[in-house]
Design a protein around this nucleic acid. Structure first.
Lengths: 225, 225
DNA sequence: CCGTGTCAAGAGCGCCGCTCTCGATTGCGT
DNA sequence: ACGCAATCGAGAGCGGCGCTCTTGACACGG
């Protein structure tokens, strides 16, 4: 609730800075993001921008957080809890890919190489796991609906408790082996998108959409969905 | 065959530059690679380095090429063509992961976000596909040894001819559906390694080695190995 | 031994992140 | 309503960056 003129101006300018930074991200990439260029385009002197973001990395962190939130919201909105598990899975995966293709540079910022001296901002974690949480919910709902095959009983991996909670919660059909497959499917989703976006697939498949769908269905099959 | 003193000196200094650059890569990352710093550490003036590499990007390209070759060689050496297909697959995957963990910044250079404004020279392709070729050979050998289940016949994806050649060649057990699974497994391998290396798994699994092995075995199962 | 080509060095251009100082403006508490 | 403190934009400046151009020294093939 910004009431005073100063607070309103501050919020407005902050938004302008992040918007311009996002635009610059799309043209020069994360490593090339220049606070001076943002200031120039904003008609401000570079030092003034430091009133709003104490450093270039803080601005980058802001963009990362916004990116995770935007992608997370996209995934959450795409999920239809009433649909069949396999369809839910595919739909969410498609939504994630669509967002990535529409915002390649933001995606690269989130899932590419960590930027320079790389900060470990703990406060990005809640935003970062939103997509994984949606996928985990699909898995957990399927288990609770009895639509997941019984767990094999053979467990060679141990998943941390907090992660298990996100990956569908407790259920007899969900042991750590199944949860580990969930992690694999999660990273495979992003691995596939990254390979497509970063050019490792160029010339390999003729219909990227069909390949992605087939791949995600294979992953769903692996999960028993 | 450098014979003249000049040629020998040039080759030597070129090697020194790439070595120092690789070392700097490990400390500051690709985005922070500075030609001036390399020159400084070499006791040269920055402009002199430009006699050896016309630009910072050319030096980077060299490092990328060397990286792909090093990783490719690692994968090739790890593969034991006499072993069982599933074991070959796991062994190669482990070797790739081991190299990635030992050379995280080089790995990030190869499989992380593309460097902004940096064009991927076409001559990196042969080096880049070496790992995929090893994995494809495992698949193809398994097919030719009759150790791959028959193809389903249901094909929804089309793989380019050149890629199909790399992915095991021609065999009745290898249709484009199987090959697409090969591409999925390939990108999943690197997706899993990237997630581990870039910190997306932190706190999720307690034993990263066991998780990776389980994940790669799951992928092998998906491929029918 | 001499001309040619290669080399390191230096100066310089415009960019960067970031800091500090200095007036101007704003707004809160009195 | 007013004065003091917080906030703001501007400017100058620091060191470092990639990259270019010029200069003088050196090695080498003819």
């Amino acid at each position: 609730m910004p009431t005073t003129a100063r607070e309103r101006a501050r919020a407005e300018i902050t938004a302008e800075i992040t918007d311009l930074a996002r635009a610059q991200l799309a043209t020069v990439g994360a490593a090339g993001l220049s606070l001076r260029a943002v200031a120039r385009e904003l008609g401000m002197v570079s030092s003034a921008v430091y009133r709003y973001f104490p450093s270039r990395d803080d601005l980058l962190t802001r963009l990362i957080l916004d990116g995770y939130d935007a992608l997370g919201a996209t995934a959450e909105e795409a999920d239809d809890p009433t649909a069949a598990p396999a369809e839910r899975w595919l739909t969410v995966c498609r939504a994630v890919r669509r967002w990535a293709l529409a915002h390649p540079h933001e995606y690269a910022l989130l899932y590419g190489s960590p930027v320079p001296g790389y900060r470990a901002p703990q406060d990005t974690v809640p935003a970062a796991i939103r997509v994984g949480a949606v996928l985990g919910r699909v898995l957990g709902d399927a288990a609770r609906a009895g639509q997941l095959p019984a767990a094999s009983g053979v467990v060679t991996v141990t998943i941390s408790e907090a992660t298990a909670e996100v990956l569908g919660g407790e259920h007899p059909a969900l042991d750590d082996t199944v949860r580990a497959r969930g992690l694999l499917a999660w990273s495979s989703l992003f691995g596939t998108i990254s390979f497509e976006l970063f050019g490792h697939f160029t010339g390999a498949v003729t219909d990227a959409d069909a390949f992605f769908d087939a791949a995600m269905r294979d992953l769903a099959g692996l999960l028993g969905l």
